[in-house]
Simulated assay, not measured.
Amino acid sequence: MTFENNTPRPFVRSSSQRMLGGVCGGLAEYFGVDVNLVRAIAVLAAFVTGGTAILVYLALWMLLPE
C-alpha cells in the first residue's frame, strides 16, 4: 500500500461552476457530487436553519480563495 498520491486537494471556490459566488460549485467539485444537489441542499438548509446557512455561505464566499 503506497501513499504517493495522498496530497490533499485544495478547498476553493469554483470558477467554472458558479452561479453567485462559486461556493456551492467548489463544494461539489471537492466532494465529487452534482452541483445542483449541493445548491438544493444549500437552499433547503437556508430555510431549515432560519437563515444561518446564508451567513455560513457568505463567510465561505469571503474566506475561500478562488
Rank of each mutant, 00 (worst) to 15 (best):
M1A: 03
M1V: 07
M1Q: 03
F3S: 14
F3H: 10
F3R: 13
F3M: 12
E4D: 08
E4F: 10
E4P: 05
N5R: 06
N5F: 04
N5S: 06
N6M: 07
T7C: 05
T7Y: 05
P8D: 06
P8N: 07
R9T: 05
R9V: 06
P10L: 10
F11S: 02
F11L: 02
V12M: 08
V12G: 00
V12C: 06
R13S: 05
R13Y: 10
S14C: 05
S14I: 02
S15A: 09
S15P: 01
S15M: 08
S15N: 09
S15W: 04
S16C: 07
Q17W: 03
Q17L: 11
Q17A: 07
Q17V: 03
Q17C: 05
R18G: 03
R18W: 01
M19E: 09
M19F: 06
G21T: 10
G22F: 00
G22H: 00
G22E: 03
G22R: 00
V23M: 01
V23R: 00
C24E: 11
C24R: 01
C24W: 09
C24D: 02
G25V: 00
G26F: 02
G26W: 00
L27H: 08
L27C: 14
A28W: 01
A28C: 03
A28N: 04
A28Y: 02
A28K: 02
E29A: 03
E29K: 01
E29W: 04
Y30H: 07
F31A: 04
F31S: 03
G32W: 06
G32L: 08
V33E: 07
D34V: 09
D34I: 06
V35I: 10
V35C: 04
R39W: 08
R39L: 12
A40K: 13
I41N: 06
I41A: 09
I41E: 05
A42M: 13
A42Q: 13
V43G: 04
V43C: 05
V43D: 05
V43A: 08
L44K: 10
L44I: 11
L44G: 10
L44M: 12
A45E: 12
A45H: 05
A46T: 15
A46S: 15
A46N: 14
F47M: 03
F47Y: 11
V48S: 10
V48A: 15
V48F: 12
T49Q: 14
T49N: 11
T49P: 00
G50R: 06
G50M: 04
G50N: 06
G51R: 09
G51I: 12
G51S: 12
G51M: 13
T52W: 13
T52I: 14
A53S: 14
I54A: 12
I54S: 09
L55R: 12
L55Y: 11
L55A: 13
V56S: 12
V56M: 14
V56K: 15
Y57A: 06
Y57F: 11
Y57V: 05
Y57G: 04
A59I: 15
A59S: 14
L60K: 11
L60Q: 14
L60C: 14
W61H: 11
M62P: 05
L63E: 08
L63A: 13
L63G: 09
L64H: 00
P65I: 12
P65T: 14
P65K: 15
P65L: 07
P65R: 15
E66N: 13
E66F: 13
E66W: 15
E66M: 15
E66I: 14
